[in-house]
Amino acid sequence: MNDTRGTALIVGASRTLGLGLAAEFLRRGWDVIGTVRGSGRTGLHDLAEDSGGRLAIESLEMTEPEQIAALRDRLEGRTLDLLFVNAAITRGDLPIGEVPTEMFTEVMSTNALGPMRVVETLGPLVAPTGTIGVMSSDQGSISLNTRGGQDLYRASKSALNQLMRCYAARRADDARTLLLLDPGWVRTGLGGPDAELSVEESVPGVAETIKRQQGKPGLHFLDHQGQVVPW
C-alpha cells in the first residue's frame, strides 16, 4: 500500500473503532501509540504482542486533565504525524428535560471537553504538517437533525464540532490538517446491533479519509467515505 507512513497516537484504542484504527494503521506500516483506560488487559494488548514492537500502549483517563498532562510529559521529544481522539458515550435516549445534571455533565465531559483537552495538550506534539482528528458523528450535524431523539448525545457531538471550529479559528495560519470524522452507523456498544456497518467495514474508510486529507490545512467535517458532512 502506497501510504505516507509515520507515527499515530490513537486515544481510546482498547476496543471497537479505536482498536480497529490501531490495527489498520499498523497494517499500513505506521508506528502506533494507543491509549487504554486503567490497567486491565484489552484487545490492544493482544494486538501489541503481534506488532513486532510497532505498537506501544499508554494508560489514559481522558476526563482527568492531570493524566493528559502526564502523557504529554511521557511523550516529550516524540513527533506525531497523527493525533486521533476516539471517545464517546451515551446514556440512553431521554428528552433533554429528563436528563439529570450528573448525566449531562458526564456525557459532555467525555464526548466534548475531554477530547478537546487532549487536542489542546497533545497538539504541540503533532508535526507542523501533521493531522489532528477527532471522532465525531453525523448526529452532531444541526442541519441533518430533522427527527430529533438522542438529545444529549447529539448535543455533545455538536459541542465537540463547535469546539474544534474554535480551535481551528485560533490557528487560522496552521498548516496542519484538522478533521471531524463520522464513521457511519457502526455496530458497536454505542451504535447498537442494528447498525448498518461493521467495524471492519467502517475503519478502512476512516483511515483512507485521513490519508487523503494529509497536507490539506484547515478543518474538515467528513464521513468514512470522504464525503462532506453538513454542519
Rank of each mutant, 00 (worst) to 15 (best):
R147W: 14
D31A: 11
Q225S: 12
L26T: 04
I132E: 00
L44D: 01
E61T: 13
V11Q: 02
T110N: 06
P217W: 06
A195S: 05
S14C: 08
G140S: 06
T105P: 00
I210P: 07
A48E: 12
E58K: 11
T209R: 00
P100T: 02
V186Q: 02
D93R: 09
E208M: 11
I33N: 06
V228Q: 14
A155C: 06
E66A: 15
S202E: 01
S39M: 13
Q213A: 13
T4S: 15
F221G: 03
R28G: 07
A168V: 08
E102P: 02
A22C: 12
I57F: 14
R72L: 08
Q67G: 07
A13G: 06
W185R: 02
V206N: 00
V206E: 03
A175R: 10
N111Y: 04
D194N: 14
T7A: 04
G34V: 07
T110G: 05
G226Y: 06
T7D: 04
L94W: 08
L60P: 04
R27T: 11
G226I: 07
D46C: 09
I210V: 15
V228W: 12
S39N: 15
T105S: 13
Y153P: 02
N161S: 07
P204W: 06
S198D: 10
G130C: 05
V126C: 00
L71G: 00
Q150D: 14
D173I: 09
D138S: 13
R147I: 14
V36I: 15
V11C: 01
T7S: 10
I33C: 12
P230E: 04
L160F: 08
V199P: 05
L94N: 04
L82I: 07
V199L: 11
M103V: 15
N161Q: 05
R147K: 15
S158N: 01
T42H: 06
T63Q: 14
L219T: 04
L219A: 06
R54W: 14
I210Q: 01
Q162N: 15
G218D: 01
E76T: 15
E58F: 09
I132W: 00
E196W: 12
G77F: 10
A172R: 14
I142N: 02
T101H: 10
G133N: 04
L163T: 09
L47F: 10
P128H: 10
T146F: 12
L180I: 05
Q214S: 10
E61Y: 12
P65Y: 08
D3N: 13
A88L: 11
S158K: 02
G77W: 13
S156Q: 02
A168N: 08
P100R: 00
A112S: 13
E201I: 09
F104Q: 03
T101P: 01
E120K: 09
S141P: 01
P95D: 08
R187F: 07
L47N: 05
M164G: 01
S51E: 12
L122V: 05
R37M: 08
A8P: 03
A169V: 06
P193V: 01
Q225L: 14
G53Q: 09
L219P: 05
I132K: 00
L160N: 05
A23S: 13
G38D: 02
G40H: 14
V199S: 08
V118R: 00
L17A: 12
N86A: 01
K157N: 01
M116L: 15
R170Y: 09
A112M: 08
R154K: 09
L44S: 07
R91G: 07
L60W: 11
D81R: 05
